[in-house]
Design a protein around this nucleic acid. Structure first.
Lengths: 181, 181
DNA sequence: TTGCGAATACTAATAGCATTAGTTTAATTC
DNA sequence: GAATTAAACTAATGCTATTAGTATTCGCAA
């Protein structure tokens, strides 16, 4: 058969798009192979099985998020920056639900690359908080709370957990405003 | 073969325990059948396939949570009640991770039984907030925020998302305190 | 240009899971 | 005690992931 010239990056990117369309749970090597017009065993040349693909997706998600958050924080200050970062988070979950969902899986113990990528998305948060004069225990509490709240909000929203979609933006901003010291 | 006398409640309860042990993703009809010392097609007498089992688990989780939250709120007032309810939430995620995880799946559109069960867990929350003089938009924002924050915190904690486990309780209580109006 | 090695695709085969159909057997009911 | 129903079983199908082995194509070096 003629070569398709698939690269790992393309493969993972396509898998992410597919996950957005059909849901991360329904993403299988079979459907990905169909999409790429290839037989499923061929995927093993690029990725270490389904588990490997999932890890690549997590990595892509973490890096994508880190970039969006950094861009959102750029040239903004204080609470404005926090709100923009929160919005970036939430927008990713709305625009790329499959990709966002792959953030959830816990990194394997000792997987520093994965842990690093996740931490990179949090760095701007540290910056803004210290700029707001928030240090020590306060900063730790605030970061944990903001992460939890934003993540939980995005998940509940994606799962249709909120009854009415009215004023969801207001609620989200109210929440963030409450959690900055 | 002699009958095993399995009831649907037992089956679902056992499935929940199994999910706690091996993780919800790894819970299959096969392993459940092994645990119950039965062949997997026999499970179809009690439950509508894997999808049906998952729905039953979600229902059990929602009801369990509703009971725990109601008990936590009992005879408590104001912020004390909110903290106790939050703790109940978080404890469930720690003690029954598999069961807790099955809360996440979105209810099928039109599945009122599932939606009702989920709402029942939130009722005490409404009570406490109105008792705190929180009404209208404020109440809506607060409820959404508290749900998001508590849920997000429980998930991140379960996934090992927080680096150090030190003072996690303090952070959790700090967060709740911030979100009550 | 030719030839060689590595990368990438393929086919074939295996194993596990969910699911359906049809059968048997035990319990319940009349 | 006979008939009905419920709950177990076996057998078979189809889908997925995965491995092994094979062939083809691309890039590079002689």
């Amino acid at each position: 058969m003629s070569r398709k010239g698939i690269t790992r990056e393309q493969l993972v990117a396509e898998a992410a798009l597919l996950a957005d369309e059909v849901g991360l749970e329904k993403l299988s090597l079979s459907v990905l192979a169909d999409r790429l017009e290839v037989r499923s065993p061929s995927l093993y040349n690029h990725v270490d099985g389904l588990a490997g693909l999932r890890r690549e997706l997590s990595l892509l998600a973490a890096n994508t998020l880190a970039n969006l958050v950094a861009k959102a924080a750029h040239r903004r200050k204080g609470k404005n920056a926090l709100v923009a970062m929160g919005d970036a988070f939430r927008n990713l979950s709305k625009n790329r639900p499959g990709l966002y969902a792959s953030l959830i899986q816990a990194p394997a113990p000792g997987d520093t690359e994965m842990a690093d990528a996740a931490n990179r998305a949090l760095e701007p948060l540290f910056g803004v908080l210290s700029e707001l004069g928030c240090e020590g225990d306060q900063a730790i509490h605030a970061i944990r709370s903001l992460r939890s709240a934003v993540h939980g909000f995005a998940l509940l929203e994606a799962a249709g957990g909120f009854g009415l979609p009215t004023d969801l933006d207001k609620s989200f901003h109210w929440m963030i405003g409450r959690l900055v010291p």
